Simulated assay, not measured.
Amino acid sequence: MFPLSLLFGFYFVQFSSAFFGTGGIFGHVLRYQKLCLCRCGVSGVTQFPDSFSNVRLLDGQSVSPHQFPWLASIKIDNRTIAGALISDKHVLTAASPLYGIPPNRVSVTLGLHDGCTRNPALSSSIETVILHSAYVSGYSYNDIALLRLRHVVPFSQFISPICMPDFRTLESDQVASTLSWKWAPNSVSCTPRVATLPILPVWTCLLNRNSDTITPNKGCLGPLGIKSIVCEDDVGAPVMSRQPYSSSFRLVGVVTTANCDHTSAPYYTKVAYHAAWIYEQIRDDCQCFSI
């Protein structure tokens, strides 16, 4: 059951929306966001195996059905990339695969577990492809994008959003999980696979790659000295963590640079760095509570 404070907050937000409107002074000054009675970041699996936090290298680990109900399969012509559902109308992913692509060439499938048998899932066309305004093709800066779905997504145990990061979300010296549909060259998995990797501190990232490519909105994943298991086709995949203070998964980043043919570490765009831009785009959407 939801605490009374959450219920009060919900009705207050709805009243404020009706009285002030989403685009008025109230919304811009107090950064109004539409909150709904739902939870974000809730895994479809209540217990994880003991080895989950140590899974890394060599293809990761198979994902149980609906273990991560925010995982989106994004079809761009004949290419498939991953993304993460963050509200009832938007999916977050990388900008680079979507540059120059019109919405009619993109579709999103949610609630999908087996891409070979096409288990019951929800497919949606795209209303708008929203690339970050500061993204420049060919560069990794601000490599982040939103897909606005044509229809509102009904949440269920099979489809629900991941939580956005908050000020307590830890990064360096912690571990994060990333999941996608493809983990090895020339080997497509019918079901998603997840791997948990260490988040490296900035100084380690600088030693690992040309410092010109490291900007404040970037993070990198380890381990170093071996070929990365995160490949170029994993660009757009969510990087997520679950903090000790919460049972909810939060979105740390989006994979933007990876190459499993080299020993260079994969890089991700930090979601927290772009939170203001994201919230501005999704402010009229239904957003869920984290607990």
Rank of each mutant, 00 (worst) to 15 (best):
C163T: 09
A276V: 03
T263K: 14
T46R: 07
H113Y: 15
F2S: 07
V188Q: 14
L179D: 00
G60A: 13
S43D: 12
S137R: 12
K89D: 07
T93F: 05
L221V: 08
D88F: 03
V230Y: 06
R39P: 00
D212S: 15
F2T: 09
T204Y: 10
R79P: 00
S133C: 04
I76L: 14
L206M: 10
C205E: 09
S290Q: 13
D88E: 08
I81M: 01
I159Y: 00
I76R: 11
T46L: 10
C36L: 08
C205G: 04
L221Q: 12
Q157W: 03
C220V: 11
Q33N: 14
A176C: 05
I81S: 01
L57N: 14
I81Q: 01
V235S: 03
V153G: 01
G27N: 13
P198V: 10
W203Y: 15
R250C: 05
Q157P: 01
L35M: 08
R39Q: 12
C116D: 14
S96H: 05
A72I: 03
A176K: 00
C38F: 05
D143G: 08
D114W: 02
P65G: 04
I162Q: 01
R193W: 02
Q47H: 15
S51V: 12
D143W: 14
D233C: 01
L207N: 15
A237T: 02
V252T: 12
P216A: 08
P97L: 02
T191M: 11
G222F: 04
L7G: 02
R209M: 15
C36T: 14
D166V: 07
L6D: 08
L58N: 14
T196Q: 15
D233G: 12
A121T: 03
D173I: 00
S228W: 11
L30V: 06
K218S: 13
G222T: 06
G222E: 11
I214P: 00
R105Q: 15
V252N: 11
S241P: 04
V202G: 03
I126H: 00
V194R: 06
I282G: 01
L37Q: 11
N259Y: 00
C36N: 13
L206P: 01
P216K: 09
D261F: 09
G60P: 09
R79E: 10
V91R: 06
L146M: 12
N217S: 14
Q174N: 12
R56L: 11
V153H: 01
R250H: 13
W203T: 12
V13L: 12
S247F: 06
A82Y: 09
L7W: 13
Q61I: 01
R148A: 07
S137M: 05
I162L: 00
F68I: 02
L92Y: 03
V175C: 10
H90V: 01
P238M: 03
I130H: 02
T93M: 05
I130V: 14
D233I: 04
F20D: 05
A72C: 06
P154Y: 10
V202K: 11
T80G: 02
Q287N: 13
I159P: 01
H90N: 11
T80K: 11
C36P: 00
Q14K: 04
E280S: 08
D212F: 13
R209G: 10
F48A: 06
T46P: 00
